[in-house]
Nucleic acid binder design. Structure first.
Length: 257
DNA sequence: ATGACCGTCTCAGACGGA
């Protein structure tokens, strides 16, 4: 199984890069975030030509998530929205079943500033997420929760921890909230296979941050234990930050037997 | 340097992103 998560920052603009990626890597499953797509404008036809079907939760100009699967695998039992999320219908959570695998694609709220209402809503989103993961784990079967968590789990995941002490994404409450989700029975796939490696998945468009190596690891693939023990490779497709009109995030690839 | 980049919606500039 090859499963990929990628915050594309507008599926309309990024469609050529997405089709390039599908052709090059042929993932079984591709989780997308920040599709920024109107529900009526989701590019189902273009993806079908590439051999993929999609379960999308599209909310217009902001957010938007989707689960793509190879046509022969299909997407079943689609569920849109996170029960209990602070702001309903922001299109930050979609679930689908692919084969025997339950897949979630999520785009956690940014939080904007510490001690803001948006920051509180971000923590609330994680709390709702932990409850939902508990439910899904109780139901049993292999589970993947992949997406843009908007939290760098540890200082190794931050190019300059000191630069973030007054910012979101590295605060103790955010990290604790993410750990509470994992405590429901999910493993950080990249960190499992790369315990000491620096592996950023996002670089700010500004100030040449990519070329200066200033990134964060905020896109995660969280897997249930039966998948974690079968992982064979977890890789970051850094080259997709280069070239024509790149997203500010890159694809994270996980493979298991 | 009080910003710098990118995408969206609406039409030059705001808002969101992290």
């Amino acid at each position: 199984m090859r499963l990929v998560t990628w915050n594309v920052n507008s599926l309309r603009v990024r469609l050529p890069r997405v089709l390039e990626f599908l052709a090059e890597h042929r993932p079984d499953v591709l989780c997308l975030q920040e599709t920024k797509t109107d529900p009526t404008a989701f590019p189902h036809a273009e993806l079908a030509q590439a051999g993929y079907v999609a379960a999308d939760h599209s909310g217009g100009r902001w957010a938007g998530v989707a689960v793509l699967a190879k046509e022969e695998l299909g997407v079943a039992d689609v569920s849109s929205g996170l029960p209990g999320e602070a702001v309903q219908d922001e299109a930050r959570w979609v679930e689908a079943t692919v084969g025997d695998l339950r897949v979630v694609s999520t785009y956690v709220p940014n939080g904007r500033e510490l001690a803001s209402v948006w920051y509180a809503q971000k923590l609330d989103f994680f709390a709702a997420m932990a409850l939902r993961v508990r439910r899904l784990r109780t139901a049993g079967g292999p589970l993947v929760v992949a997406g843009d968590m908007n939290v760098a789990p540890a200082d190794i995941d931050v190019y300059d921890p000191a630069a973030f002490v007054t910012s979101t994404h590295t605060s103790e409450p955010e990290r604790t909230a993410l750990l509470a989700v994992q405590a429901e029975g999910l493993v950080d796939a990249y960190r499992q296979l790369h315990p000491d490696d620096v592996g950023y998945t996002w670089w700010d468009y500004r100030q040449g941050h990519f070329h200066r190596g200033f990134g964060l690891r905020i896109d995660l693939t969280l897997v249930s234990p039966e998948i974690a023990e079968r992982l064979t490779r977890v890789g970051i497709e850094r080259d997709y930050r280069k070239g024509s009109r790149p997203s500010d995030h890159v694809p994270l690839v996980a493979e298991w037997t």
